[in-house]
């Protein structure tokens, strides 16, 4: 069991909301997807530490019922499922959100039962901790890369391919001049990606256990 795969952390939060009020959440989620409402997501983009995140609101009737042998759900609340894939530790992530987009968080979780609001920090920490579910298996296609690495790689590779198409057969002096200009343009994307440092005691425990298992298996 681990919420961590390389540089990514998987957060799962499940919170109840009165079913007849979740239209407010859905309205806000819909609004921020419109061109004019995208400004509300600017904080998420600015944070730049998220690969992907999502919210899914599931009403009592929307819990899948596949067969008469399966008991029907009798719950009254709707439940909001939140999933995030982000870089860094739990505390860094929650604190960044609390600091950068407290208003947006309050709108996303508006009317959820006993949501304490994102400010002050400690009740918000307690709310997320209490409602978090641990991941049983987490897979990341690029454990060495942060979200910014993926975006920088796209930027750098595009420029590199274009540079090669245009300048590879230039006169050597012109080539070097163009090469230096390329470096200036992509300097923010030039860095070596390496395995992430251990960011929590639990992550360290997982690493140690896997290392031990590997040694036992190879012995």
């Amino acid at each position: 069991m681990s919420n961590i795969a390389g540089k990514s952390y998987a957060m799962n939060v499940v919170t109840p909301a009165k079913w007849y009020l979740t239209w407010l959440n859905k309205l806000f989620f819909g609004f921020v997807q419109l061109p004019g409402g995208a400004a509300y997501l600017k904080g998420l983009l600015t944070l730049s530490l998220i690969h992907y995140a999502r919210w899914a609101i599931v009403s009592p009737k929307q819990f899948p019922h596949l067969d008469p042998s399966q008991p029907k759900e009798t719950i009254k609340y709707s439940y909001m499922f939140f999933f995030s894939n982000f870089n860094g530790s739990w505390a860094q992530y929650v604190d960044s959100f609390h600091t950068a987009i407290p208003g947006g968080l309050d709108l996303f979780w508006t009317k959820n039962v006993k949501y304490p609001k994102s400010v002050p920090l400690q009740p918000f920490h307690a709310y997320i901790t209490y409602n978090q579910v641990w991941t049983n298996h987490y897979y990341n296609a690029y454990p060495l890369a942060s979200s910014n690495d993926v975006k920088n790689a796209q930027h750098l590779s595009g420029k590199l391919r274009a540079f090669n198409d245009v300048h590879s057969n230039d006169d050597p002096q012109d080539f070097q001049q163009a090469y230096n200009a390329l470096l200036l343009e992509v300097q923010g994307a030039i860095s070596i990606m390496e395995p992430t440092p251990i960011i929590s005691l639990s992550a360290q425990a997982v690493e140690e256990r896997l290392s031990h298992e590997s040694e036992v298996n190879s012995a």
């Binding site: 690969h51 992907y52 499922f81 296609a141 690029y142 790689a153 796209q154 750098l156 590779s157």
Partner: peptide, 27 residues
């Protein structure tokens, strides 16, 4: 078994995985 996402936030590039991996290799 699928439930609808009310909001899906893409903080990445939205390219096919093969392109992302190639770009990371090149970087």
């Amino acid at each position: 078994c699928q439930v609808n996402n009310s909001l899906f936030f893409n903080g990445s590039t939205g390219e096919p995985l093969e392109e992302q991996l190639k770009n990371l290799y090149l970087k």
